[in-house]
Design a binder for these strands. Sequence first.
DNA 1: ATATACTTGATAAAAATTGTCGGGTATTGC
DNA 2: GCAATACCCGACAATTTTTATCAAGTATAT
Lengths: 148, 148
Amino acid sequence: MRLTTKGRFAVTAMIDLALHGDNGPVTLAGISERQKISLSYLEQLFGKLRRNNLVSSVRGPGGGYRLMRPMNEVSVADIILAVDEPIDATQCKGKENCHNDQRCMTHGLWTSLNTKIRDYLTLVTLEQLVTSPKVKNVSVLQDLRAHK
Amino acid sequence: MRLTTKGRFAVTAMIDLALHGDNGPVTLAGISERQKISLSYLEQLFGKLRRNNLVSSVRGPGGGYRLMRPMNEVSVADIILAVDEPIDATQCKGKENCHNDQRCMTHGLWTSLNTKIRDYLTLVTLEQLVTSPKVKNVSVLQDLRAHK
DNA sequence: ATATACTTGATAAAAATTGTCGGGTATTGC
DNA sequence: GCAATACCCGACAATTTTTATCAAGTATAT
């Protein structure tokens, strides 16, 4: 799970798509103008989103993109994983040549944390982002986690 | 809050430092060999960690780095924020020229999510990572979150 | 004291990633 | 047919990540 501007742009674009998807497909040109993301970049991002079955495309006039699943079945993790190829911060890439226990240990610790972050972002759906109070700049997910 | 290999390397290095800090300062050369991170890169990372008061340095033979705070007072968020300069994914960088409500809205939503991720990583301390069962490759933080 | 090895600290360079621009082709509604 | 739109590609600049190189400080032995 990597978290960079690339993933942020993808999340922002998906939110825009979710918000404007009521009247047929949404054009990338529209998203580009509203969100100030370059059209070329959006094309790259939506190519990946489409190949990951998060959106579907309609060509020709009146065409554009549609969400392929209901908003409550699309998580932030889905979006980020679709556009941000996961990278491997460990040196022993799954190989069995890790003789030094210490090394494997810390790597294991890290990958565990990594899993936790992904699990957390899996809980946040597009629907939650879209249906939150819009005008307030407060936290979207304040009530998501039980112990707070 | 950005999450890249840079931050991962920093977390891994800090875990290594916490594990080997019992017998005086830990050298970057040692961390480099154990974790397979280039010495030069570690030098840069620890420069930032030092400037953020997460570690202190001792020069000369027998020197190295020490944790500056107890392990339970160092969070993963602390480490990542120290080395990974936060970037601004919004286009209207705090300016008031955001006439399009739609744009500001999604930006607000994103920054909220961003805050949530940071809050989450703030709960994970170095101590939790280090004292977790070492040999198992299972999740480190399985019991951290109440509703699971 | 002085040399020497060890180590941090700083800067430059190389590699990888991110983002933009421009050109094209394919598809489809009108 | 025409125009709107997705889709694909290559080139490029900007940024970030990673490595390489050099300089400076300091404990220790001699």
